[in-house]
């Protein structure tokens, strides 16, 4: 197995050494490589080669599977991104959808300019409902007095609120 680049070795050695030293070095190298040639290493056993080929085929299949999976995942991700981009409303579309939601709100409230008063009403009713819920729970639990009022008074209060509510 003499190196095919051997012919250039002499010239290469001459770049670093004087001519006689280069010649001697060349002979030493050749003699050393002849020694290696004279003592060939054993060849790998055929069962080892067969096993390696089988392992490589398995590894190649696994790698192909991984590549396919990654490609599939990338394609899915790309599709999701495209769909998300398509589904994202643009500013113009947002205005039209806001109008359609607005139509669900009673016109009286929608057209009211007194936001502070509207909000105050909501706070008032919310607090009252919470108060009533607490009293109902207390009644269910069998307590006699709820928030300092007897049950009859409570019912009256509830009715009054309901009437007030339906009046608008």
């Amino acid at each position: 197995m003499m190196n095919p680049g051997q012919d250039h070795l002499k010239e290469l050695l001459r770049q670093f050494l004087e001519a006689p030293a280069a010649e001697a070095a060349y002979r030493d190298i050749q003699a050393g490589e002849r020694l290696l040639e004279a003592h060939p290493a054993p060849a790998p056993e055929s069962r080892v080669i067969l096993a390696i080929k089988a392992q490589m085929a398995g590894a190649a299949r696994r790698q192909q599977r991984i590549v396919r999976l990654v490609r599939g995942a990338l394609a899915t991700a790309a599709a999701v991104i495209v769909l998300a981009l398509i589904g994202l409303p643009d500013p113009g579309a947002r205005n039209s959808s806001a109008l359609s939601y607005a139509s669900l709100i009673p016109t009286a409230i929608w057209e009211s300019d007194d936001i502070a008063a509207d909000d105050l009403d909501i706070v008032y009713f919310s607090a009252e409902i919470r108060h009533l819920e607490a009293q109902m729970r207390a009644l269910d639990a069998g307590e006699e007095q709820v928030g300092g009022a007897v049950p009859d008074e409570f019912e009256n209060e509830l009715m009054a609120i309901e009437i007030e509510f339906w009046k608008g």
């Binding site: 390696i52 080929k53 299949r61």
Partner: peptide
């Protein structure tokens, strides 16, 4: 391209 025969040839 993952061809098993080509890998086998490299081994040979």
């Amino acid at each position: 391209s993952g061809d098993a025969d080509s890998f086998a040839q490299v081994v040979d």
